[in-house]
Amino acid sequence: MTNRRILEQKTVLVIIFLFALVSVFTTFGIIGVLLQETILFFEQVSIVEFLTGTRWTPLFASKKFGVLPLVNGTVLVAAGAMVVALPLGLLAAIYMSEYASTRARSVLKPFLEILAGIPTVVYGYFALLFVTPILKSIFPQTQAFNALSASIVMGFMILPTVASVSEDALSAVPRSLREAAYALGATKAEVATQVVVPAALSGIAAAFILAISRAIGETMIVAIAAGQQPKMTLNPLESIETMTAYIVQVSLGDTPHQSIAYQTIFAVGMLLFLMTLVMNIISYFFTKRFREVYE
């Protein structure tokens, strides 16, 4: 090859290698930025108070830095969303993979994809202005901002994720296993629930954990519909605040740089990052185990 061609290949290779490294820098960037402010935060607040305290009032005169109310709000909303998303998502996956004809799939699937593609701010609008009024007419004690409406809407938002990842897992179960079950005189439902679902279990588990991780990190629905009152409650009809909604709340105000309030959002962000990281890792291992068995 001519020198020019060799030079071109070498130059391009170096550039695109650096591009590939951008993702690594992103990860280090996230950890670095979060760590930097979080360390400053923990110079002023004890880590024990942060992780065990049950009052969160960093924006008030008497500041308390117990993050548990935010965690409580986050878990409450996410758990509610899972009550909707997991069973419906799994059932939808079973329908798509075991029952739907090719034509039914081609009609139903785009709807689920649109459901997954709607921006979260739109879901927030729907939760606050459509679902909450309905909840109020059923349960008069429902507050204007409440965890339940956010949970329900978030559940439907996550349903397509659960359905599509679970469906991939169900479809990866070899046909020979289904045939073996049919040849013993099993009905279609018995094949689906007693052979296919158990065989795809680790793939389905990965889908469920991914869904929980998404629910914990979801921001706009809760920022719009669930309120700004960090408190320790299990009542879904009350106003609460999640970790993500708190970050939005502070971001919208004029919080001066280097104030403790500014640092709190990084500390909360760090906790959020670690929680989703752990779940992503677990989900990754389930997926890997599933692949080892069937691919």
Partner: peptide, 25 residues
Amino acid sequence: RRRIGMVFQKPNPFPKSIYENIAWG
């Protein structure tokens, strides 16, 4: 199919225990 069973080209046991493979049917 309960009365006319089938054995396939490639062995296809269920990913369950040996006992369960037989008890399930």
